[in-house]
Design a protein around this nucleic acid. Sequence first.
RNA 1: CGGGAGGUAGUUCAGCCCGGUAGAAUACCUGGUUUGGGACCAGGGGGUCGCAGGUUCGAAUCCUGUCCUCCCGACCA
Length: 492
Amino acid sequence: MSKEITSRSTDYSQWYNDLVIKGELADYSAVRGCMVIKPYGFALWENMRDVLDKMFKDTGHVNAYFPLFVPKSLFEAEEKNAEGFAKECAIVTHYRLQADPDRPGKLMVDPTAKLEEELVVRPTSEAIIWSTYKNWIQSYRDLPILVNQWANVVRWEMRTRLFLRTAEFLWQEGHTAHATRQEALDETVKMLHVYADFVENYMAVPVIKGIKTPQERFAGAEDTYCIEALMQDGKALQAGTSHFLGQNFAKAFEVKFSDRDNKLDYVWATSWGVSTRLIGALVMAHSDDDGLVLPPRIAPLQVVIVPIYKGDEQKAAIDACVQTLVQSLKSMGIRVKYDDNDNARPGWKFAEYEMKGVPLRLAIGARDLENKVVELARRDTREKSTVPLEGLAVRIQQLLEEIQQQLFSKALAYRNEHITPVDTWDQFVSMLDTKGGFMAAHWDGTSETEEAIKEKTKATIRCIPLDNKQEAGHCILTGKPSAQRVLFARAY
RNA sequence: CGGGAGGUAGUUCAGCCCGGUAGAAUACCUGGUUUGGGACCAGGGGGUCGCAGGUUCGAAUCCUGUCCUCCCGACCA
């Protein structure tokens, strides 16, 4: 039919696009590199956002909102940060349009409405936020500041991909200010763990927690911590980052505080973020050639019920039975939909909800009603079974939990199988090409070698895992001594 | 930004080479029969052919420009 999906083996990229478009997560838009997030995709984002937001609040953070625009002079204050983002900034230079005298009915930029100072559309908000924190902080009593903002940002990427890299995307960015280096470091690591907790336990995507090399570090950070996930095509995806910013932004924006001994010092900072890119990770981690597979804890719909009937009489009997079931499911907090739309037949609905990744599907017909059973189908395993109506709601609740665990276990097994220790250059190259995934390899610790490896293989160091095992060895490229293995992969 | 492909009905596409007033499937609307894996019959509506210029008696078709998308590459906290 018109909704066929390209298989992963035929064309992985096209498969991904098909899922996003045909699964109705998002659409292309009239704006280069920008997508429309459709209601189903946005419902998914809302679920993710709500869980994360609660986690942030449970760890003492509060939400605020800062402007979309950053005056250029503020933006350039922290030089490394500005330099890192300069190539992908959208700039507002004018504030008015006027009728175009040469083209009736058309508009042109009013050349007299040029801004004194250009405004940068935020690619990240450190600058505007730290220029504000300057006014909020005078004493150690004003610290810490633990603020998060849910916002959109713009990065003018050369090549975009739905969810994975769009010119505009939604995210949250935490920006915290602390009195001591240690406190800021603790916060950086704490939020990394929050992210890992969320991605693993709600999205069912296993991640490796680690530190970026200087080469891959956030512009303006002293250290960048990250969580790295593995996709089904063997490429890695950076799923979230948490940055220890040191005193860089405090110095750039002159944010000082008096400590207990009345000595002035610069404030210590962190920032951390995850974005709608996580949806891309989710899609690529679990889905199959029949469509999306969504983990129950964040699936917009957890259960769909499809009636099968001949005539109004049967329909009415099924309605009555389903109504009770729906009520008990809803009372347990389960997101359920009874799809009794008469325009689509059962087979069509089955295919549709499989495409959309609904974890559980119930089919109930007159035959089932007589036997007091329903047909229960799992999206993840495609298993179908006939189960009694008696105690169904509880069983569904358990099953959703089981599916959640199963998805994680499966993804974890795949991920673990794809961390390959390699000891020679030939092995490194051939495993990258044939198997993919992470290569655990020795590296001499220099940016030059890292760059050379990237140039030769397109593989980058995804991270140095936290609590990494120390082990003497030799760099796979240069043969120089190395104290530990780091994780290389080709990445999105 | 470089290379390749593409934009025609809501959607997927044919028509373009060789200019002559726009087509299929599907979706949609109406009525009926249906309903346990993407139903069937009958009738019906829907497109200034991405946009802007140009050539021509005449442009979906030829030419120029421009916008948007996809794939590969470069770039990318």
